[in-house]
Design a protein around this nucleic acid. Structure first.
Lengths: 329, 329
DNA sequence: TAAAACTGCAAAACCGGTTTTGCAATTAGC
DNA sequence: GCTAATTGCAAAACCGGTTTTGCAGTTTTA
């Protein structure tokens, strides 16, 4: 059933029907009697306007795009949930895509999202995504970056205080008397990883302790990572504590420790919480990122920019929290 | 830049441009020389057809909808990842939505997905979703249900062999000498839960053992569930083994056990694996659902129906696998 | 009481594509 | 050498909405 057929059936013009349906009867000077007749009929047949035609005429898609590294990850999943839940309430739909850290994929994903005419994008950028992101800004499409910065581009941004959170982790280990702290991170140049790493090296050099760092291949799978961690642990028998810069690295590390039968030999702390960390023996302390808050701030920024495109770009840094799970650590 | 402007600039008609762009130059009897001239210009200016206009004209959205219970869950997340990854390759985009088990939400989500003109739907149904699902079928939109059945509706369906998988779990406990097996499930009437429960009660009654069942409020949060499990464990001190019908119930159960200081007192098995189950002490055995395979089968069924709408509806049951993680259990 | 303003709606223009039809010019067929 | 078929493209119709304009008929205003 189209608006044309409705108009024909009621012997009115389709412009009249359109105005009435969209609550613009008054502005279109349609009499109340006619408006009611139209509304009644529309209700009766359960008319739903064709979304393609509507979008074509209005230029609006009521859709936003969410680009994350991996939707099945325990950090991005809850963010995706929150975003969709909130946006649905205000009449938006969400396209999602996972870059899996691939530069190439990241760029094509941005391109196809733009082709789909999303009204806004919330993006966890891959490396070298700047050109694509600039294309978004050039098209005046609201954009919020989260989790890590996109090079040194000026964008709206939401993230946790990675440096500060990382300091909390290192301090916590030091306060509990651990001095041989190994850091396990990946080799990416992403800002959040750099920040976490820097806090560690700064603090250790400041205290006069030795920094022992393992940089894992970002693209390696979990098994390979665990293998490399095993080698690292064997080569550094002096370590009494391990700091993992993300939870999936920590999981790989725990598997490595288990494989070496060294359970309980290390004080362990991780950036990012995980559902089961509190159930492990001993439980794993961590620096927690407030996921719902990150998601909500991203939405806020996005709609702020939509409302006032000329507002200056904003950076929101959310403090992270230390969760202590053991007495010894 | 619109197709009209291109046509004007090249002094040709827009129909010619459209035919050439869509590779129908031959069928439209456009000379190769003109076709090349058009293609060159189109490339030069980087023209992208307006997706709204294209969809309006063709009736196609190249979009499918994915409705799950919770996108951030460790079962649905990987399914969402796989579906999006695969569909992107063949030029489709994916809208997602989480029902969170709410009947009301489930129905409105289906409605808005239909309004968006998705070309297909992959749905993990809530209770009482039948009317909405029938609306989908009436509109001839390809539909695949997964994880659980939608009442006794005839639909395409993909799921694991819940009864068989559940038998594997119970058998495994029995084979290892445990005879006082408690079952922790939720109170939903969803088919997959019923199947898992039935395998348990059937097997126990067949072996002449007593069934001890806790049905948790489906909507309760994790903390409440853990509390109820604590009560259950206190009231049933005879239990030597626990079978949880999903991994999140198992997690709640582990927390309850920890709170009661009864670690190691039970043989534990769970339906659905979890990233960290293998790291726990003792590690948790489970019945694993092959997530990627479920996702791929759902896609296959969807596109089969798209291709041949009159094909009979299909049910694909994928065998589940027992993962043994301890010597004692 | 004639010009001005307002009322209530239809008609038209527009959004940007796809697909069918039509028509002059050329080629083929006999 | 005249008709029929084919070529190469333009023009028109269509998808289904929104928004602006136009135009009688009525009511106000001076």
């Amino acid at each position: 059933m189209s608006i044309n057929e409705i108009a024909k059936h009621l012997n009115v013009s389709k412009s009249t029907v359109s105005l009435v349906i969209n609550g613009k009867a008054e502005q279109g000077r349609i009499s109340q009697a006619l408006a009611e007749r139209i509304l009644t009929y529309v209700q009766e047949i359960g008319y739903k306007p064709n979304v393609f035609a509507k979008s074509l005429a209005t230029g609006r898609s009521h859709t936003i795009g969410l680009i994350v590294e991996n939707i099945s990850d325990s950090f991005y999943g809850p963010i995706a949930l929150h975003i969709e839940k909130y946006l649905r309430k205000i009449g938006y739909h969400v396209f999602y895509s996972s870059t899996l850290g691939s530069i190439e994929l990241g760029n094509t994903i941005v391109e196809t999202m733009l082709d789909k005419k999303v009204e806004g994008l919330i993006v966890c950028p891959t490396n070298q995504m700047e050109t694509s992101l600039e294309a978004i800004q050039k098209q005046q499409i609201p954009l919020v970056i989260f989790d890590r910065k996109a090079g040194d581009m000026a964008t709206n941004y939401v993230g946790t205080d990675n440096y500060g959170g990382s300091l909390l982790a290192v301090d916590h280990l030091l306060e509990n008397g651990f001095q041989q702290i190994g850091l396990v991170t990946n080799d990416s140049t992403q800002s959040q990883m750099i920040d976490r790493l820097n806090a560690y090296t700064d603090k250790l050099s400041q205290e006069g302790f030795h920094a022992t760092i393992l940089r894992l291949d970002f693209q390696a799978d979990a098994l390979e990572k665990a293998e490399q961690i095993k080698v690292f642990l064997r080569e550094n028998p002096q370590l009494d504590a391990l700091y993992f810069t993300t939870n999936y690295l920590c999981i790989a590390g725990l598997k490595a420790i288990q494989a070496l039968n060294r359970e309980g030999s290390y004080a362990i702390i991780s950036f990012d919480d995980h559902e089961l960390f509190e159930l492990l023996q001993p439980a794993i302390s961590c620096v927690e990122q407030p996921v719902a808050q990150i998601a909500q701030e991203a939405i806020n920024l996005l709609f702020k920019q939509k409302k006032s495109p000329d507002l200056p770009l904003q950076q929101v840094i959310i403090p992270s929290k230390l969760i202590k799970r053991k007495s010894t650590c």
